[in-house]
Amino acid sequence: MTRLRMLAVLAVLASPALAEDLTPQSYQNLLTPLVQGGSDVLGAPLAYPAGTPNVTSAIVTVPVGGETGWHEHEVPLFAYILEGELTVDYGTKGKKTYRTGEAVLEAVGWPHNGVNTGTVPMKLVAVYMGGGTAANTIKVDASASK
């Protein structure tokens, strides 16, 4: 009887249906796309900086009513809002509000300021796709907003 059970288990493990479930294509079912594209939130094409790649990831937290301060990015930046709400002022390009569960390819080379307009601390995951001597973030004067 034990031999029969072993053969049954082997038959199940060797079945084509199970084999299909172990192929790389089945992993696609594990993915939930957040954002995809070749341009930032303002429509500018993304370009990686020259030099040795340097990817940095960080959790950014802004308290209720707090601001990021006017700044810009010299490298492409992916951001995903974990909690709260952030309204970003892009100057002449307008304002956009990002909420929990939303993702964005942030503006590159364009001054902007984020304000927590929600009721809880805003937390986001930031992934800077940098390299060479390009800075992830540089502070700019508010009057530099375009």
Rank of each mutant, 00 (worst) to 15 (best):
G130K: 02
Q25P: 04
V62M: 00
Y98G: 03
V140A: 05
S145R: 12
P63W: 01
Q36E: 15
V75K: 00
A142Q: 11
E67N: 03
A50V: 11
G114Q: 01
T137V: 15
A17Q: 11
G84D: 01
L77Q: 11
T68N: 03
L7A: 13
G94Q: 08
A107R: 00
I81P: 04
L7E: 14
M122I: 05
A134F: 04
M1E: 11
P53N: 10
P45R: 10
H112T: 10
A126E: 12
L82F: 01
S143E: 12
V62F: 00
P76S: 08
Y48C: 04
K146D: 03
S39L: 06
W70R: 00
R3H: 13
I81F: 02
Y98I: 04
M1K: 12
N136V: 02
G51M: 07
S15R: 10
V120Q: 05
N54D: 14
P63Q: 05
E102D: 13
P33C: 05
G38M: 12
T117A: 08
V35S: 09
E67K: 09
D21K: 09
N116P: 09
V12F: 12
R99N: 06
K96A: 04
P121L: 05
L10C: 11
A79C: 06
Q28L: 13
L86H: 00
P24Q: 04
P121E: 08
A58T: 14
G118K: 00
P76C: 11
N116G: 08
V108N: 03
R3A: 15
G118P: 07
G43L: 09
V88A: 01
K146F: 08
P33T: 10
T100K: 15
A135H: 11
P53M: 09
S15Y: 06
P33S: 11
H71D: 06
Q36A: 15
L7Y: 07
G109Q: 08
T119S: 13
A11D: 13
L82N: 02
V55Y: 00
Y90P: 10
D21T: 13
G91Y: 05
W110P: 02
P45F: 09
